[in-house]
Design a protein around this nucleic acid. Structure first.
Length: 271
DNA sequence: AGAGGTACCTGGCAGC
DNA sequence: TGCTGCCAGGTACCTC
């Protein structure tokens, strides 16, 4: 479910409701997530104020005086805000009971998500320290992408989905950015021209910022923290459109497995 | 260093 | 209706 725009949509949705609130109680119903929920979680959270929330790649970072709570939504995770006690469903694994009567609930059917603890300087956490630049950073530019792609033999789609190159291009938006840049997803990364690298930078940024502005993409069951759908799905050019006519040239969109993931492209618009 | 495959887990859906 | 197999938005970790 969540790629970077969905995570950012979640962050913006919960920020005004959780920052400045105290965590009164932590309820863990299922501790077997991607990694076991840390033992000391309650001690670190309970009776402390949430001072801020930020995002790095697809990780949400909640700060308090004791350190940082790292939340990853995995493939199927979501956070929702509840106004009052609602009986937990089968995949409602964790609740943060907040001052003011609200609850922040973590739901994750596939349990690929994670909740971890880090010091105040979460950037040094092993999961975060290996990450490449944010797509909106100045550091992510034509020179950078061109330099990093030299000598790479893997498909450009795998290359831009590699979090050590740039974060935030998941399976949907990687396909979409490549379509907008007119580049075949199977193209060897090392063979991109400088011009194509420039185009790809711009389009990765465009596709992500447009998706954030639309509240993310709703596939299957993604909804925002208060149940609203994301509208970017209506703007998808290729993802999930196998055999349907390209919105630009009407050629049938093709699907191909690249790196064990479904990839979609227009055989005419993308070379 | 880079490339490719496997693993984690559940639910929805198509096809029989 | 019920079973089986395939597919799904992520990414760490392993081997070659």
């Amino acid at each position: 479910m969540p790629e970077l725009p969905e995570v950012e949509t979640t962050r913006r949705g919960i920020e005004p409701h959780i920052v400045g609130r105290q965590v009164q109680k932590l309820v863990v119903r299922q501790s077997r997530l991607r990694w076991p929920v840390p033992q000391g979680l309650a001690a670190q959270l309970e009776n402390h104020l949430i001072q801020g929330i930020s995002r790095r790649a697809k990780y949400l970072l909640l700060y308090n005086v004791r350190g940082t709570l790292i939340i990853h939504l995995g493939m199927s995770g979501s956070l929702c805000l509840l106004d009052r006690t609602t009986p937990p469903g089968p995949h409602d694994h964790i609740d943060l009971v907040l001052s003011g009567g609200r609850y922040l609930r973590f739901n994750d059917p596939r349990r690929f998500g994670a909740i971890l603890l880090a010091d105040a300087g979460a950037a040094e956490h092993t999961l975060l320290s290996v990450l490449g630049p944010e797509p909106f950073d100045e550091q992510f530019n034509t020179d950078y992408l061109h330099a990093r792609s030299r000598g790479r033999k893997s498909a450009v789609k795998n290359f831009i989905m590699d979090g050590s190159i740039v974060v935030g291009a998941g399976n949907i938006y990687a396909s979409e950015a490549l379509f907008r840049a007119g580049i075949r997803p199977t193209r060897q990364a090392g063979k991109l021209s400088r011009t194509q690298c420039a185009l790809l930078c711009v389009q990765i940024r465009n596709v992500l910022s447009e998706a954030i502005a639309q509240g993310g993409t709703t596939l299957r069951d993604f909804v925002g923290v208060q149940g609203q759908a994301g509208y970017f799905q209506q703007d998808l050019y290729v993802y999930g459109r196998e055999s349907l006519p390209c919105r630009i040239c009407s050629s049938p969109i093709q699907r191909k497995i690249i790196g064990q993931r479904s990839s979609f492209f227009c055989p005419t618009c993308q070379r």
